[in-house]
Design a protein around this nucleic acid. Sequence first.
DNA 1: CCCCTTATATCCAACTCGCGTCTTAGCTAT
DNA 2: ATAGCTAAGACGCGAGTTGGATATAAGGGG
Lengths: 245, 245
Amino acid sequence: MIQAESEAAFLARYDPADYARPALTVDLVLLGLQGGQPAVLLVKRAEHPHAGRHALPGGFVGIGEALDDAAGRVLREKAGAPPAHLEQLYTFGAVNRDPRMRIVTVAYLALLTEAAFTEVLARTPALQPGRVAVPWAGEAGGPVTVLSAGGEVLTLAFDHAEIVALAMLRLRGKLDYSEVGFALLPDLFTLRQLQDVHEAILGTPLNKPAFRRRMLDRGWLEPTGRLETGTSYRPAELFRFRKGD
Amino acid sequence: MIQAESEAAFLARYDPADYARPALTVDLVLLGLQGGQPAVLLVKRAEHPHAGRHALPGGFVGIGEALDDAAGRVLREKAGAPPAHLEQLYTFGAVNRDPRMRIVTVAYLALLTEAAFTEVLARTPALQPGRVAVPWAGEAGGPVTVLSAGGEVLTLAFDHAEIVALAMLRLRGKLDYSEVGFALLPDLFTLRQLQDVHEAILGTPLNKPAFRRRMLDRGWLEPTGRLETGTSYRPAELFRFRKGD
DNA sequence: CCCCTTATATCCAACTCGCGTCTTAGCTAT
DNA sequence: ATAGCTAAGACGCGAGTTGGATATAAGGGG
């Protein structure tokens, strides 16, 4: 019911704080595979709040900067990572998610190949890897556990555990009907490598012939005729990802 | 490559404008069905920019207000609508999406039953309906056309046409594996009504026995034993939506 | 009581998917 | 050179799913 209100009522309701703006940031889930397991790149917070805890790399959105550009900048500045698959995940805006002040963050998912992941890790001491253990099957959703290299459970800062959980959920959901899976693989790859990626993300073994058929029928795979080298058994054919038609 | 930079370089790069905050709003795609066609509720802008054009209802996010709460408030204040299915869609943050100032908006999708849609429309003169014509098949995505009651094409303000297009894409994608379809139906409904909703959203006719089977196997439908009334032919059984197990 | 319309139930063919098995091909050890 | 190992790639079968046609049921209206 929309109706005019009296000036008195307007003033009684008026609170200057209502017109203060939340701060706006982007946070990145830098996801890759490490030894066949999903892993994220984290920064260890030096200062309060949540000092000592691990957090997702992020940064404020500039006043003249598009959200996607801000995410790309954080990817460059904080990770020195090559331009990778970058997609907006969700926007988190609970009032007390940051105790310092009201901060709304737009979460992005960035996918790195295993090579890029280890290279970024080696080159950037500020970043540490966190293995992501997903306790739920399929696309049930729910919390995930992030483990340090030593195997201890990491309690992430702010609501970042929730963000990582959503990233895993989204990735599982999109994996077999979209092209995201290829963002985790190098330019040339075998069907086995592709299947390994899918199994790592889905957390479940897949049937080999069925997986082959499905992937080949999708029309995403371009056979190169070349074979992998360095195997002590029959080498597999190398494929290239053919961008969506 | 992270490395220390000189103070001079820092100062050269420093721009106070970088620390200004974008304004943050929520915009709602209030979607319902009108005569078997998807339709959205729009406000006609009285002022510049985009004066005279139709826009999505929206509002600023209060400094002490969670995003979901802001969306719920806009739903109440601008539409007087009953609490409906409300889900975050995407955050739009292009730099020049609003010529007045930098505004980042979190778009929400709200689903109304046909009864709620017409009731809100009748009760709130500020809102006008816009038929949504989706020219692409399946989940291809792309622009949509919004038509006035008279059948003219409406050019929506800002990037709101893009937001509506994304809402339709999201809805089509989720329709048959999630429970969103029921948000467009009253408490009791027949299988034919459910199929009509799916066909309206998907924009394509569906096979009746296959649809029946799939829906009944999902376990979402609770038979009531009651029959619809007022038909001049065989009445269909009324079902109720049983919330997700 | 018959007819009209739409709901609901059956049935069948095409397709997909999981899964076991067979063949192929490179390397390695003898 | 050759047999044997391993994993790639191909084949085939049975179960389950889906599209689509058809038959039966049930209410109102003549």
